[in-house]
Design a protein around this nucleic acid. Structure first.
Lengths: 196, 196
DNA sequence: AAAAAAAACTAATAACCGTTAGTTTTGCAG
DNA sequence: CTGCAAAACTAACGGTTATTAGTTTTTTTT
């Protein structure tokens, strides 16, 4: 009769959610069964229901935790710093850190949000739309102060967000490059371009 | 007793695969049932098995068709054109076209390849690794001729590939921007950067 | 028109799914 | 040590899944 181990400063629900993020990231939400999740914890599937409400609820926890982290950081960026370029640089580096430090959760939020049920699906999509809108505003700010080229701001944030999301494929070569170098290269490429 | 309609120059299997790509894109492979697929065609689920071998086989068809299209185009690019920058521009524009013209198939290949069974999974990943390696070689070529900055070539192609993949989220605003403008903006941002 | 082949159908299978009910075990407070 | 609550267990539920077998209908070929 195994037991679910909670990390310190964390509930057993948190421990389940963490294991679930790893499983959902590897196999996808729909292809992961509660029995598999229970196995990876060392417990029977029905035991999970002493701590969580449903399989869906786990996905919701993961997705909205990630969304919240990004929103909180954007709040800080908007109040604290100065010009648009430094804001963008700050954001790019934060996205890189989130991707590397919370790999499973960010990956699941990016890929499995489609499996959310209403009204959570609409809520999630709405939050992301608002987040992107705030980033577009930073781009517009930068073009009006002539820091940035006159470019379609939606295309610009699409490129930036997609590029940092692409870090989910980075694992393979991460041996050779430090996180600082990675951040520098990405900021440099995304802001200054590839050509000389 | 409805019938499966094949497009001209196409088999009934192709027609099923096309409908499957649309369904898998909307709901994900694992969350799509053969009964749903059959419904969307107007036929019973068991009837599909007169034309296809299995659900997995459909996913294989989609993924490897897309991979093959990209490989074929890269073959052309490597033989025909001149400097590295024009090759990259050519590739970026092709990726944009593929994404917008074969939206469902490219989306499924990008998102659902994880659900491939062995040995198809390994085969697919290997093909993608080789494809990326050839792109890295183009970047290296560009830096050695001093067309491009000295940058980690893996980071560069990660950014470029991720940015074009991000076009799957483009649908929403595509009303305002022509495909040529979109291509120009992306090529300009990815090659020349965002800052003035 | 008859025969053959292709492609649809109905019905069923065994496996697996999330989840619940009821029971037993565990760990802690008195 | 006793009692109680938390959390584990076993067993089962109704539902869905991909797929198969066997049959009937439709289309093509002779």
């Amino acid at each position: 009769m195994a037991k679910i181990k909670a990390a310190k400063n964390g509930t057993k629900k948190d421990a389940i959610t963490k294991k679930a993020a790893a499983l959902f990231r590897r196999k996808g939400f729909a292809s992961s069964s509660m029995r598999e999740l229970a196995d990876s914890i060392g417990v029977e599937a029905s035991s999970l229901y002493n701590h969580i409400g449903s399989k869906s609820e786990i996905l919701q926890s993961i997705c909205f935790k990630v969304a919240n982290d990004f929103n909180m950081h954007l709040n800080e960026v908007e109040t604290i710093s100065g010009n648009a370029v430094s804001k963008l640089e700050n954001l790019i580096r934060f996205h890189i850190h989130m991707m590397l430090d919370n790999y499973d959760e960010v990956h699941v939020a990016n890929h499995e949000w489609k499996q959310l049920e209403e009204p959570y699906l609409s809520n999630f999509l709405n939050q992301r739309k608002i987040y992107e809108g705030r980033l577009v505003e930073i781009i517009n700010e930068g073009t009006s102060t002539r820091e940035l080229k006159s470019i379609n701001p939606h295309v610009a944030i699409l490129i930036i967000l997609s590029a940092v999301r692409g870090l989910e494929f980075w694992q393979r070569h991460k041996k050779n490059v430090s996180i600082e170098d990675l951040g520098n290269d990405m900021v440099n490429h995304l802001l200054n371009g590839l050509t000389i």
